[in-house]
Design a binder for these strands. Structure first.
Length: 310
RNA sequence: GGCGCCGUGGCCAAGUGGUAAGGCGGCAGACUGCAAAUCUGCUACUCGUCGGUUCGAUUCCGACCGGCGCCU
């Protein structure tokens, strides 16, 4: 397989990606590189469906437990680290296999982010704290003046656009445009070869079963012990379901409504993932599989072999 | 059997004699450093049924149907 082509297994949560990835990795001797913005956090295991010892023993995994729950991770950091994990796998003559549902991270690997202008950390954090207090409409108003191309986005993006414009004197949208032009001029380093795993309408059932399995596996106990040492505002808590399980552990919600709520949040997340995959990845390099379809193994094998020629 | 309360989109729910708030859910979408995040748009030609009053009723009156409560 050419050095510049990388196999990627993605799809909505609970679709069955990791099972397929594990089998494929065992068969072809691959190293799994997790592209999952929640599995990076140590201690958040059950609710993130993190691969356990039985998986990591048989196949090398990267991208898991690489950050403290209090750390703010990022797409660029993941892309940088993933690049070195890929190199490491290649050196070991193992095929790198990217597996995960965080589309933004995956895209950051194949379409590198521009270099962020340096912002004075102290000024930035006080500005960002202040912006967090402001109503959304206000941020939108500032942004429409400072960087109008970003004014339609959500609060997180508005804040960043405002911070960059104010502190670095650069419009994020300009930096983005420049980097796209530069990329067009240079040859791309890596090309994705996608396998999108999606069971379609059956995904709801998969999600329901997985949530029950997580609850039975001791998710509540895990959260109970995490609450002891991870501050409530730590980024890791943003994983869907964790806040609900925390309420459950605190006794402010009953088990059956918690379960229902977690299922809903997970379905909504899966829906956003599908929207992303529908619009943000290059359709030309995509093979779709339904893991419940009997001939899926043949499809997966064909997809892997195609990666050879790419 | 009698009396009372209630019946609004998949769910919860506001409301008025002048032609249906909001929330949840669902659907579609955006998104280059928090992305399992953060946001945007859409989602009841219709208010249990049938009559009546009225220029006009989801809103008033009556009957009926359904639910709940109390009484005998």
């Amino acid at each position: 397989m050419a050095d510049d082509s990388i196999r990627v297994i993605c799809g909505p949560t609970a679709a069955g990606k990791s099972g397929i990835a594990l089998n494929v990795a065992m068969e072809y001797g691959a190293t799994i590189i997790s592209a999952d913005s929640r599995q990076i956090y140590r201690g958040f295991d059950i609710g993130t469906a993190k691969p356990g010892p039985s998986e990591t023993r048989v196949v090398p995994h990267r991208g898991i437990d690489v950050a403290e729950p209090t750390e703010r991770y990022s797409a660029s950091r993941w892309a940088t680290e993933a690049t070195s994990w890929i190199a490491e796998a290649n050196n070991e003559r193992r095929a790198p296999l990217i597996v995960g549902g965080t589309g933004f991270y995956i895209r950051a690997l194949f379409e590198p982010l521009f270099d962020a202008p340096p912002l004075d950390p102290a000024r930035r954090s006080s500005l960002s704290d202040w912006l967090d207090q402001q109503p959304l409409v206000m941020l939108r108003e500032w942004c429409s003046v400072l960087d109008s191309a970003k004014a339609h986005l959500g609060r997180t993006q508005l804040s960043r656009a405002i911070e960059t414009a104010l502190l670095a004197g650069r419009r994020l949208s300009d930096l983005q445009m420049e980097s796209q032009q530069n990329r067009a001029d240079s040859t791309p380093q890596l090309k994705p070869h996608y396998l999108v795993v999606d069971p379609g309408a059956k995904l709801s059932q998969h999600i329901e079963h997985r949530v029950d399995a997580m609850l039975n596996a001791g998710w509540i106990d895990e959260v109970n012990s995490l609450m002891g040492h991870v501050p409530a505002n730590a980024p890791a808590w943003k994983a869907s379901g964790y806040r609900v399980v925390r309420s459950l552990a605190e006794g402010t919600i009953d088990l059956s409504s918690a379960r229902a709520r977690i299922i809903i949040e997970t379905r909504q997340y899966a829906k956003r993932q599908r929207t992303w995959l529908r619009h943000q990845i290059d359709r030309a390099n995509v093979t779709r599989v339904d893991p419940d379809n009997p001939d899926f193994e043949a499809t997966v094998e064909r997809w892997w072999k195609e990666g050879e020629l790419a």
